[in-house]
Design a binder for these strands. Structure first.
Lengths: 88, 88, 88, 88
DNA sequence: CACTGGAAAATGCCGC
DNA sequence: GCGGCATTTTCCAGTG
């Protein structure tokens, strides 16, 4: 026995979110189009974005390791937050 | 010679949009998790969503071929629009 | 250390298959050309093929979800196979 | 008025060819699988195939230019074929 | 934790 | 030569 209303609600929520996602995909394409219009090669631009993403991933990774070290040193989350603040 | 400011602005816009997209991806996963929590098999749920998506795709495909037929019959876009109106 | 002969054999097999695939791509184009020659609009024809393909995809998708339902009901693959047999 | 039999025959020929193409796609995947099974990284293998394809494309390009030269020198297609034969 | 299957992104191509 | 489409390839989650 399944709850139809519950199922339908879930399906609709997912579809709604996927629609929004599809809109963003189009938005992104449009920015690439615009970039092309002002002379930037979209293909290269995509590579630039990918590289930056990699970098950010590394930064987050390092931040996570830093957290681990700090926590291993007995610092509480609050202290960790303060320490992060101090980094900048 | 490239315009640095222009490039940076474009990159940031794209990254912003991709961030929003990533958020939606997470949101969708969470709905699937929630569904699992109330007893729906995520795998089946995904298939259900896929079937509904294919239904919609089929409808769009048929609408596209109808447009082509109308155009093949020598109807101009305006006439096509009118014909679409008449469908309803 | 890699086995050169083995690698070369694999590469050649793949290239052979891709050649055959490319031949089929050409063959398909030729049929579209032929169709055009006897008055069928290739664009519409492609859409017709696409619609039929989507029909088939939808059927397969539904069959897949049926399998999942059966499995969710605790039926073993054998039972699933029997159930499929019984469909016919 | 369209000729239904003719249309159906064309559609079936196209679908038949596309089926064969799909089979080859599977065959190719299987060779990659097999390669993986004996220790070759499929991803890298794909790159190797792509590079060789590029080379062949260049070779064909050069052959086409050669043909142009030969034809410019007043050689007929037959002579071109013979010249190719002689290359080997 | 490797692996399969499926979703998403990117490249290439064909028609206009 | 450009946009749109199809194919291909890459990525990732789920699974055993």
């Amino acid at each position: 026995m399944i709850n139809n209303n519950q199922l339908e609600a879930l399906v609709q929520r997912i579809e709604r979110l996927e629609d929004e996602k599809a809109v963003l995909t189009v938005d992104i394409s449009e920015v690439y189009q615009e970039a092309k219009g002002v002379g930037f090669d979209p293909k290269i631009l995509r590579k630039v974005i990918a590289i930056r993403k990699q970098d950010q991933a590394k930064v987050k990774e390092e931040a996570a390791v830093l957290d681990l070290y700090l926590q291993a040193l007995g610092m509480t989350p609050l202290e960790v937050a303060i320490a992060k603040e101090a980094e900048q």
